[in-house]
Amino acid sequence: METAFTPFASLTGGAFIGLGAVLLMLGLGRIFGATGILSGAVFAESRDELTWRLALIVGMVLAPGLIFGVTGAMPALTVPISPTMIVIGGVIVGLGASLGSGCTSGHGVCGLSRLSVRSLVAVPTFMVTAAITVFLIRHVFGG
């Protein structure tokens, strides 16, 4: 299925993502990594570790509602894969991102902008394995 090329919306959205990361560092002194925020909330050992992460997550979840309120339309979301594949993919994402200490936001946005050596290794690694996976599913196994 083709999707429209949206350079301006994507660049603007990316700038907001970056702004969110900068605001979190400015206010709370933390890296905006979704894996760390989610797992930190799930495994929080104190109330203080939990509450700011929950507040952040609530704000994130409210965003599509804000977009709907302003534009009258929810952001586009099409899931082209089966529930089974979502579960398999999700478990692998959770396992891999927590083993590798980060995902697209933590290593990608925050890590690369800090020129972290670990992120400079992690990001090309997951970009390449993601591309290989999509290639295998779509063009080799014909999913």
């Binding site: 894969i81 594949m85 979502i86 398999i88 993919g89 999700g90 478990v91 692998i92 994402v93 959770g94 396992l95 891999g96 991102a97 083993l99 590798g100 995902c103 697209t104 690694t125 997951f126 970009m127 390449v128 394995t129 993601a130 591309a131 290989i132 996976t133 999509v134 599913i137």
Partner: peptide, 9 residues
């Protein structure tokens, strides 16, 4: 691994 999961889901 994360990339594989991201590519699946």
């Amino acid at each position: 691994l994360f990339g594989v999961g991201w590519g699946i889901a």
